[in-house]
Design a protein around this nucleic acid. Structure first.
Lengths: 151, 151
DNA sequence: AATTATATCTTACCTACTAAGATATTTACT
DNA sequence: AGTAAATATCTTAGTAGGTAAGATATAATT
């Protein structure tokens, strides 16, 4: 295959990832999250309740850092700490999904509408192609990350 | 269009961006960059030489933070400070692209090979579709970011 | 020549991280 | 059961990298 085509896709996918990061940072800033906390908000929405230890594993942060993270979110009443009934050492982080959503949704709305329109502008067959690309690319990146992290 | 299809693409694109971020962080860690410096390496590769002020604008960091950033990169001999001949206030950051590449390339190699194979597994027409999706999505995200940043 | 503007650096302070150890609880072993 | 070891989270001390404000050096303006 033409190298230019491959290079073009490579550059576009890099740019896509970077632009996405920029947008998420802008949204987080507007929502009042300083620094890197926005990176962890997604976990609460995707995974729902989890223990502090699980969050530590997911994020790669030390348990001390997770304690601080929960403190900051709790102060904003976006999550609540609860002790596990069966193992009272465990701290279950209970996110207030509705509140988090209510905070973020207005900021995502513009993007979401446009993105939906973009998707809808493709045919089902075309979407299948995009889906396949995403799925395989995600797989490849995960493989690379795992290789590096287990070195 | 079917809402499930649209939702699926939305989730995949989110996951794609997040997975990409994870991979870049793993690569940066392996290359010996602490914290968030990896975010700025791309600027040097893409833009080449630039002044400290330009970097400050590009990154959104204060000039003080940029001074520290350049110091850290200079200590690793990945960039050099030079004074502008015509305006001696200006500090030109001269990246050693070859050295930066030599540092990163082995870590990207696995991913790059796999990504090229992935791209090559699609037909030209299919690639055009993926390209179009990326281009439009990038545009939409930039619009959203700009809207938020100018609020 | 004096004033103002600009580009970068310095300083003081702050936030969020890590590493190591403290605390509370559970599990395993005799 | 009683003791030791393991586990989950929190606390503390130290560090890195950020901001805001002001210092310094140079350039542009009047």
């Amino acid at each position: 295959m033409d190298n230019n085509v491959i290079n073009q896709i490579r550059k576009l996918s890099q740019q896509y990832a970077y632009t996405s990061l920029q947008m998420h940072e802008a949204i987080a800033r507007e929502a009042g999250f300083s620094g890197t906390d926005h990176k962890y908000l997604g976990f609460f929405i995707q995974k729902g309740a989890m223990t502090a230890g699980e969050l530590s594993n997911l994020t790669g942060l030390t348990t001390g850092a997770v304690t601080g993270l929960i403190d900051r979110f709790e102060k904003k009443k976006l999550v609540k700490r609860q002790f596990d009934k069966d193992d009272r050492r465990k701290v279950i982080i209970n996110p207030d999904i509705e509140k988090i959503m209510a905070l973020l949704e207005p900021l995502y709305k513009e993007f979401r509408n446009k993105a939906e329109n973009l998707t809808a502008s493709f045919s089902i067959d075309e979407i299948k192609i995009i889906e396949t690309y995403f799925l395989r690319a995600i797989q490849i990146m995960n493989e690379t990350t795992n290789t590096l992290n287990n070195k």
